[in-house]
Amino acid sequence: MNPRNKLGEDLHVSKTVTLPRLNRLSPSLESTALKIMEESGELAQAIGKLRGLSGERQRLEEEEAMQMVARELVDVAQTAVTMMFVLEEQYGIDLESILQEHITKLRHKGYCD
C-alpha cells in the first residue's frame, strides 16, 4: 500500500488508533513509565534485528522484522495510552486539552496543516 498519490502528496493526513483501558491492572505513574521504557527497548531491539545491530550474525528478513517492529510499536502505544488513563483517573489531567495544545504546537512549527 502506497500512502502517496501520483504527485507525491500524502493521502493520509492523520491516523486514529483506539486502544482499550486495561481493566485488570492497577498501574501507577511510575510502573507505567517503566513499562514504556521496557517496551521502547523492545522496539529498539526489533529495529536492531532488522539492521543487524544486535550483535547477532543472522539478521531477520525485512518482512519478518517489520512485523516485529509494528508489534512492538503497538505495545509502546498501548502502554502510552495506559499512562493517559492513569493521568486522567489518578491526577485529573484533561488530556483532550493537552492533545489540542499538542496539535496546535505541531501546526505552529509547520509539522502539519
Rank of each mutant, 00 (worst) to 15 (best):
N2K: 03
P3H: 06
R4S: 02
R4A: 04
K6P: 03
K6W: 11
L7T: 10
G8T: 04
G8M: 09
L11A: 08
L11P: 05
L11N: 13
V13Q: 15
S14G: 05
S14M: 10
S14W: 15
T16G: 08
T16H: 12
T16M: 11
V17Y: 10
V17G: 00
L19P: 01
L19Y: 04
P20D: 11
P20A: 04
P20F: 07
P20E: 08
R21N: 13
L22Q: 14
L22N: 10
R24P: 00
R24F: 14
R24N: 14
R24Q: 12
L25C: 11
L25V: 13
P27W: 12
S28F: 06
L29P: 05
L29E: 12
L29W: 13
S31V: 07
T32M: 06
A33C: 07
A33Y: 10
L34S: 10
K35H: 14
I36L: 10
I36Y: 11
I36A: 05
I36R: 09
M37R: 13
M37P: 02
E38T: 11
S40T: 15
G41D: 08
L43Q: 12
A44M: 14
Q45R: 12
Q45L: 08
A46S: 14
I47Q: 02
G48W: 05
K49L: 02
K49G: 14
L50W: 01
L50T: 00
G52C: 02
S54D: 15
G55D: 07
G55V: 11
E56H: 09
E56Y: 09
E56R: 09
R57M: 00
Q58R: 14
R59H: 00
E61P: 07
E61N: 13
E62H: 07
E62G: 06
E63G: 11
E64D: 03
A65W: 08
A70L: 06
A70M: 02
A70N: 05
R71P: 00
E72F: 04
E72P: 03
L73H: 06
D75R: 10
D75V: 01
V76L: 00
V76S: 02
A77P: 00
Q78M: 11
T79I: 00
T79N: 04
T82F: 07
M84D: 01
M84H: 02
F85S: 02
F85A: 04
F85R: 03
V86L: 12
L87P: 11
L87A: 15
L87M: 15
L87I: 07
E88Q: 15
E88C: 03
E88A: 10
E89Q: 13
Q90D: 14
Y91M: 07
G92R: 04
I93M: 06
I93D: 00
D94E: 10
L95C: 03
E96G: 13
E96A: 15
E96P: 03
S97Y: 13
S97L: 12
S97H: 14
I98E: 01
I98G: 00
I98H: 01
I98M: 01
I98P: 00
Q100S: 08
Q100C: 02
I103H: 10
T104Y: 05
T104V: 12
K105V: 01
R107H: 03
R107M: 03
H108G: 08
H108A: 15
K109E: 15
K109C: 10
G110P: 07
Y111P: 00
Y111V: 00
